[in-house]
Design a protein around this nucleic acid. Sequence first.
RNA 1: GGGCCUGUAGCUCAGCUAGGUAGAGCAUCUGGCUUUUAACCAGGUGGCCAAGGGUUCGAAUCCCUUCAGGCCCGCCA
Length: 516
Amino acid sequence: MHWADVLAEKLCAQEKKHVLATGITPSGPIHIGNMREILTTDGVYRSLIERGANVELIYVADDFDPLRKVYPYLPKSYEKYVGKPISDIPCPCGNHKSYADHFLKSFLNSLKEIGVKPRVYRASEMYRNGDYSDAIQIALENVTKIRKIIETISKRQLTKGWLPFNIRCEQCSKISNAKPTLYQFPIIEYKCDCGFEGEVDVRKGGVGKLPWRIDWPARWKMLGVTFEPCGKDLATVGGARDTGKAIVEQIYNYPHPALIVYEFIMLKGQGAMHSSKGTALSSEEMLHMTPPEVLRFLIMNNQPSKHIVFDTGLGVLNLVDEYDREERVYFGEEEEIKGMKDLRRTYELSQPYLLPTTIPYQIPYRHLVTIVQIGNNWNKVKEILIRTGQIPEELKEQDERHIKQRVEHVKYWLENFAPDEVKFKIHEKFPSVDLDSNQKKFLSVAIKKLQNIDWDAEKIHNAIYDASEEEKITIKEAFKTIYQIFLGQIKGPRAGYFLSNLDKKFVMKRLEQSIK
RNA sequence: GGGCCUGUAGCUCAGCUAGGUAGAGCAUCUGGCUUUUAACCAGGUGGCCAAGGGUUCGAAUCCCUUCAGGCCCGCCA
């Protein structure tokens, strides 16, 4: 059984409303690892819906969290905002309402693209609206108990006057620097590092927030959460998951949700991603180079407990090929091979929106890498595909959309991630190369051979072989010569297919030029 | 130190949430009209499933122990 169904079945055993929660702090580009949290949950969500369960998928943006430090991707001037809630900090690009919005918005767009539709909550609004008031009051009434839980389970020593509440200084509006001096419900007197001394009424919204270890369980109760995946860093012994379980049960009197652990996504050659270190691949960027169904496939095809190594280089091509192959198997065009586990289910869960009823028109992704570099834009690519008979002239609308989308992804990948070995550029004008007399003789024979054949990859290929044999130059040298006059480099894509995708007139003209 | 994950063909991995004769891709070898280049086809070679023990009629698959590697334990998924 697919892991999403296994998890869904377990939840189904309890007949009640299920709230599947996800939560990410938009303090930087939200990366593909964060996306795993959402997609993992979405898999379970869809499975529950199919089972007819009463279920809701939510996403809580922790935008009331303070900015921890000036991250590498921020200007130095952000120093003055450290400690303020990210929903109150100006947007780095100036086009969004706040710092949090800047990162949140692109993430929400990505969600739309991969077909995830959660109900979105913002912590900043929840705090300001006073939604947290009860939870805050309960936490403050149970300081001693909470303190004991955290100190016992996490083995951390809390400071003397510690309160389960981080006050937001009224003067500097920073959340992390104010220390409580006296607490008498509902008033906390405090002294801030900025020199300000004041008092807040905890019943009022937005005067501060619960620390993370308490905020999390408080939220479970408040939103009725029954399932939430968490990253392996939080799942460590004595971590937020352990203290959260104890706090939600002992303080908030609510059963802890199912907290499954998911592993990190590594970038090949770089290890785990850290947005704070700048070694992260944003979900947006990821979606520019990987078709949405393939990104979903990456997550759905792997058990959450397994780490995934993502290779932004040639690995992307393999991933798309694997997806296409499973698609062919799904639609019965290819035989299933042993080891394609839960193939049908994986394929279904990989669809961002509707499940196709017939197989989408496939063009091998690697091949698109070549054609896109010849055609440059969709219209030309389409023209080449039609001329070479790789697609029919009348293509179904959704098939055209599908191929066009892939072409766009290939382009982005070529521009930003592809290794040099697969890149080439057709020179519009004759490149500056010196050909020796043998090469020229070979070319003049090749012209004759090519002139009268059908413009077909295999025939072109054979013509090149014939010419090289007649002129007694090595086949290697022959191919090199071809690449030189078209690409200005000594290597290139498979020659026959490559030339067949070019316009014959253009090829012949270039060949003529080369022997002058 | 603690936690989680991983250890299956030369390489990358599937199979382990149904325990029942070892799977794929790449690489390599042979053949197909000579086929550089990650868009051929057909076939072959190649594995004591990390090691040891246990449960079972039967274990890559379940349990225990050991070894090796990776990641995580600061509110970074």
